[in-house]
Design a protein around this nucleic acid. Structure first.
Lengths: 157, 157
DNA sequence: CAGGTCACTGTATTTTTATACAGGAGGCTG
DNA sequence: CAGCCTCCTGTATAAAAATACAGTGACCTG
């Protein structure tokens, strides 16, 4: 079950950026309410891999590191990690992500070079995919949904 | 002897930014070589006061990290402050703002959690709101307009 | 001067985070 | 299939950081 980790990473990112998590134990309890049963040790590793550092105001991305810019994440991985919701709208498809998830997800989607896609626009937590018409949007939506094994939670925003 | 602390703060800052200090104990040892005899507890307090956070690469000023996500302005206030124009377009709603007004306005709109909204994307002076269809856009538009007591005038940007 | 407050710090301890180690699951090769 | 990886994780523990508490000295104020 390799995808559990990436999904959990996405959840870590979402929780940590959306609410104020004081320590790993608290994060563990929040994940617990989502059926995610992991130990503090695992979260310590997760936070390290996500490059999140502890500040008095919670965990923050350790930006401004001269590190290598991550290569475009393969689509499946990016979807697992970032995709929160899919919202169709006529010839458009809106993908919701955790804060700052839109750019990497959009890059991955672009990289996949779907023929249906006319273009994409990424904000902070929203990716807008434009297709020529509703039919093509439906086709694309189906493909994307098939990539995501798990059900998506609709989050009002 | 109140100035000891200030001086030590300066030294902390100098050491921490010029070489890679892995933990408070190491910092304590470096200070020791300068006749500064303090305990780990004091350094813990110092680092907090200096707003230095521990990263895998040593201690860094928290200011180098992404700002605290500003509390989202209540919708009414944000609309009053930023909204210049409302432009409907089929199932889309374009909100114009003064320069750099789009992000805060979009945050406020997001925070209001309108059910009609599939997603928003904010540029610099433009917020694009996507709704599933024209009907919902009309509904949303009406709500937003009702929030704004004053008449809107189109201003070229 | 007595009494009170405040800022600062150390000691001892608790809380939080990191890690050494081992086991399980899956993949690959011969 | 055996043997050998690699990845991921939990348990147990070590390391690091934060803090409760108490003590000290400077500085007021009556």
């Amino acid at each position: 079950m390799g995808s559990a980790k990436t999904f959990r990473h996405g959840q870590n990112l979402r929780l940590v950026t959306s609410e104020r998590i004081a320590n790993q134990e608290e994060l563990r309890r929040r994940l617990w309410t989502q059926r995610l049963r992991v130990t503090q040790a695992t979260l310590s590793r997760d936070l390290q891999e996500l490059k999140l550092v502890k500040t008095p105001e919670g965990y923050r991305p350790a930006s401004a590191l001269p590190e290598e810019t991550a290569p475009i994440p393969p689509l499946a991985r990016a979807l697992g990690e970032f995709l929160l919701d899919i919202r169709p709208a006529e010839n458009l498809l809106v993908l919701k992500t955790p804060p700052s998830g839109a750019q990497p997800l959009a890059a991955a989607v672009d990289g996949a070079k779907f023929p249906e896609i006319a273009g994409t626009i990424a904000g902070d937590d929203t990716v807008l995919i434009i297709t020529p018409n509703k039919r093509q949007r439906e086709s694309l939506q189906q493909k994307i949904e098939s990539f995501v094994g798990r059900p998506l939670r609709s989050r009002a925003s």
